[in-house]
């Protein structure tokens, strides 16, 4: 069997597959790219040809305009596509709408590039599908044992409890516009919250995309343009940057909340002046990461973007052969 580095290697542009001649989630413009999902650090504009799920292509078009790449090709989950001698399949990653793992098969070897992923149920996208592989490339955003996320429904219950306790105040929930916002909306609906939810303008295009894909979000209305002391007792969803912003002052004595895996750590919540931290993440937590590695038992594990060090230690303790890949260009996910 040929070595893994013949199939996949790290370049300044990002992960590159020499026999297939394409990059995966490149951070700079390249001739041919496979994009795992629509978050901006993975999906950038300006590539030659882009291969992604139809949902991811739609997200890119909505964000960057229809000309985000010279050419785009859609591959549904499970559909086999050939690039030179390499067979490429996109499989659900459970991260956000359209998110995929890139499965590369070449010369009897299977490599899986997870992209971002989680193992929990998410009403807005299909569940992560484990694919047996020789090489697994995993994200490590929450790769520390301090990250063991509670049930998302419990966190949403906290939000609703607070809404009933402070009916004269607006609850302002910071949530990433792609994925987190729609998941929070769906979780609120599942918890029986049927009232109109108010949206910052930055949410509109992604909400529309999710709805077009069949995710029902219930009654939504714009929060912008409201008068002073507006929307007491209501829930407003806004990008994380907006909740402590001047924009937030229009609401009635707002309670700033933030839905993110980072809210697990108090100092992070305090830094952002969050009064109601909600630990809801679209990434795998420590247990999900390590359990995935245990389940897949790859011959080789590559760990990228996040806390590689602790996962390398885990791998050493568990006799898993692992390497950290330093891929430039991915920040702390603003997830």
């Amino acid at each position: 069997m040929a070595g893994f580095r013949q199939l996949l290697r790290n370049t300044p542009e990002g992960l590159y597959c020499p026999p297939g001649d394409f990059h995966i989630d490149p951070v700079r413009p390249v001739p041919r790219a496979i994009i795992t999902h629509g978050h901006s650090d993975h999906a950038r504009s300006g590539h030659g040809a882009v291969l992604a799920t139809p949902q991811t292509l739609a997200i890119m078009a909505a964000r960057y305009g229809a000309d985000f790449a010279e050419k785009s090709e859609a591959a549904s989950y499970g559909q086999r596509v050939t690039r030179n001698a390499v067979e490429v399949t996109l499989m659900p990653a459970g991260h956000v709408l359209g998110s995929a793992q890139a499965v590369l098969r070449w010369k009897g070897m299977t490599a899986v590039i997870s992209g971002d992923y989680k193992r929990r149920r998410d009403p807005t996208c299909p569940l992560f599908e484990p694919v047996p592989c020789n090489l697994f490339v995993s994200e490590a955003t929450f790769g520390l044992p301090v990250f063991r996320f509670p049930d998302a429904s419990d966190e949403v219950a906290k939000l609703l409890k607070s809404v009933s306790l402070f009916p004269e105040r607006t609850h302002l929930v910071g949530a990433y516009a792609l994925g987190k916002a729609q998941r929070i909306i769906c979780l609120l609906r599942e918890a029986g919250y049927q009232k109109t939810l108010y949206m910052h303008g930055a949410m509109d295009s992604m909400n529309a995309l999710y709805q077009a894909d069949g995710v029902s979000l219930g009654p939504l209305a714009p929060a912008t343009g409201a008068a002073k002391n507006a929307l007491p007792g209501e829930i407003v969803i806004a990008p994380p940057s907006a909740i402590a912003d001047k924009w937030a002052r229009r609401f009635a004595d707002p309670i700033p909340a933030f839905a993110s895996g980072w809210m697990m750590v108090r100092a992070r919540a305090r830094q952002r002046h969050v009064e109601l931290p909600l630990v809801v993440s679209d990434h795998a937590d420590w247990d999900e990461l390590t359990e995935t590695f245990t389940e897949l038992k790859p011959e080789e594990l590559w760990i990228t973007h996040g806390s590689e060090e602790a996962l390398l230690r885990w791998a050493a303790l568990n006799d898993v052969s692992a390497t950290a890949l330093e891929i430039a260009g991915y920040e702390d996910e603003d997830e």
């Binding site: 520390l144 750590v265 108090r266 806390s307 230690r313």
Partner: peptide
């Protein structure tokens, strides 16, 4: 918990 994993965690959390 493995002391090294604990140390990495403590570093990150600070409390």
């Amino acid at each position: 918990l493995d002391p090294q994993l604990f140390a990495l965690s403590y570093d990150f959390v600070g409390d």
